[in-house]
Design a protein around this nucleic acid. Structure first.
Lengths: 172, 172
DNA sequence: TAGGGTGATGTCATCAAGTGACATCACCGG
DNA sequence: CCGGTGATGTCACTTGATGACATCACCCTA
């Protein structure tokens, strides 16, 4: 993060990262598949965390209620450290490769959620639609939250964004 | 496409592509920013096409009606050549870098749609939500259409998917 | 028709991202 | 003290990607 902030992502070489971390480039690649992964280290953990939330939802819950519960958990997990989130997001937003990587992490999360919904008996395409919609809300809400210096907390932003989505999609 | 299908994306070298096309690797990179772009050559044109559709929608149309009109146009543009689409999609789906690139193309489209909606006076976050939701429908419908050998046409699939989305998001 | 401009292409050199093969080192248990 | 094991380093190599420069084909005009 230091180097990426100091000189930009592309201008930073793996050799430099390794040097600053006190190891070799070869070793770096034993821990991270590539230069981008550094910024997404926690995403697998987050995904597991959210999957547990999904599975903890009551049997009676509708697909969107399950998604809403997952978003609540996501908000508390992501909603700390706004300053750090902002810095990380600013690095990501200024580089195409990193945006690509971010999108695929979210796509992976979405696929996992859809799979979880299917395991609960939700048929296609409803499972995919609910999961993808949830990720849309997550993304839009997170973006708004990160860009406001001292606005509402993330949970609140997510809830109002989800409400907004319902209104927008059904308005005729 | 030939080479990517024959030996897979990663196993294909730019030198080989260039040779088969009768030119140099250096020249290849003058036409395509990188190895992945070959498969997304038409995406800029498609985006412009859809933006014109967005701008052609009547002033009275609600955000989701505009999106729905855009999806109609997208369906007729993408809905030809199911066989070619299937082959292309199969190459993309078997490689992570290509999936990343596909996602960012769709993200770019989504951003353009949101911007277009904003120009029409739709406020945030409604513009982003409507645009992103539209892309979700596009993606889910396209995936289903491509995986069915002789199913309904893409326009039909898109319409039913959009209906499904409305039901899923509002069911309680 | 010679000559000059222009755009497309090729050649060469170079850098950085990855990866495989193998050596080495630190530490742990017996 | 020794052998094993996992982490790290070294080296060599491939490939993607880019800058600098040469060349070629073609067209326009004096």
């Amino acid at each position: 993060m230091q180097l990426y902030v100091e000189r930009g992502f592309e201008q930073t070489t793996v050799a430099e990262i390794a040097k600053r971390a006190g190891l070799t480039a070869r070793t770096f690649f034993r821990y991270f598949a590539d230069k981008r992964e550094v910024l997404f280290a926690g995403s697998a953990d987050l995904q597991e965390h959210l999957m547990r939330a999904l599975e903890a939802a009551p049997n009676s819950a509708s697909p969107m209620q399950v998604v809403s519960a997952v978003l609540d958990v996501a908000a508390t997990a992501l909603g700390q450290h706004r300053e750090h989130s902002r810095q990380r997001q600013s690095v990501i937003n200024t580089n195409a490769e990193l945006r690509e990587r971010e999108l695929i992490k979210l796509a992976s999360l979405s696929a996992a959620l859809a799979e979880g919904l299917r395991r609960r008996g939700v048929p296609e395409p409803d499972a995919s639609l609910a999961a993808e919609t949830g990720i849309v809300v997550l993304r839009v809400a997170f973006e708004r939250w990160v860009s406001e210096p001292h606005g509402a907390d993330l949970s609140q932003t997510m809830r109002t964004t989800l409400d907004r989505l319902k209104t927008v999609t059904t308005a005729r």
